[in-house]
Nucleic acid binder design. Structure first.
Lengths: 138, 138
DNA sequence: ATTGGTGCAAAGCTTTTGCAGTAGC
DNA sequence: GCTACTGCAAAAGCTTTGCACCAAT
């Protein structure tokens, strides 16, 4: 099935390098495109590459609450069994990293009872962080 | 702050009735608009009402598939704690609904250890379903 | 030399908005 | 009678796509 041979282009290399060095951020396609336009990567190519990489599991593609645009983030090569998970606060939109053994339990439970194999690297938890819960802003 | 007095219009009543009788489904704005067009509710009004109701917490607004359109669902007056969660298979992209007590445990655990209050309505689990796991990926 | 990738601009889709008319209170 | 709400259509915002050219293998 994997008959289509992919080529290594400068644009792809540029994008990957950019994503790797910004792997701690959540970037929109528009943001990425803006930053790469000076490096000779067109907007259309950015979109095409992002979709392609997401399909290959090289980057993560997701929505951050309410806002329309998709966000992308590079997935580290090394972490096959990620030791941490992601949580995004709906209010302040900050991204938190956490570790919790209950996540693994949930994973096992679902594998048994539902036959779902959760990819915790792609799953992002949404909710409210302590600060926003207390501050109680909009 | 709540100084703006809201009016009860026929359009709003029509939409709410429609959403209530379809509270088990995940509806896109486009779908809703299509169904209500014959009942004299315009598309613009549907969008305005959906946003308004979501802001008031009467309905739930979220992205389910990777695809663009937002989905909406009526929030039952009685049930504050929804009983099911969502899981999307990365391979076949189907959406699954499931119930699992471990999710609640995880929620409690994180509330205690991390001070994160997970909104399981908005959190979508990603992974691979049984069928795709067996069938081998595309 | 093949043929996948790229750039450009146009098209596509979903959602929002300006404005004038309408209807709720 | 106010003025929030609605309908219409136009506009906006994000993403995809057709086509001709370019470049990786």
């Amino acid at each position: 099935m994997e008959s289509i041979k992919k080529r290594n282009t400068k644009q792809k290399a540029t994008l990957l390098e950019y994503l790797k060095s910004n792997s701690n951020k959540h970037l929109t396609a528009e943001q990425i495109s803006r930053d790469l336009s000076s490096l000779n990567v067109s907007q259309a190519t950015v979109y095409r590459l992002l979709n392609s990489l997401a399909k290959d599991g090289k980057i993560r593609k997701y929505h951050i609450e309410e806002k329309q645009p998709m966000c992308f983030q590079y997935i580290e090569d090394s972490c096959i069994a990620p030791s941490h998970y992601h949580f995004i606060c709906n209010t302040c939109e900050k991204v938190f990293h956490f570790e919790d053994k209950e996540v693994e339990k949930l994973k096992d439970s679902l594998a048994k009872s539902q036959d779902f194999f959760i990819d915790t690297d792609k799953t992002v938890f949404y909710g409210t962080c302590k600060k926003c819960m207390q501050g109680g802003k909009k």
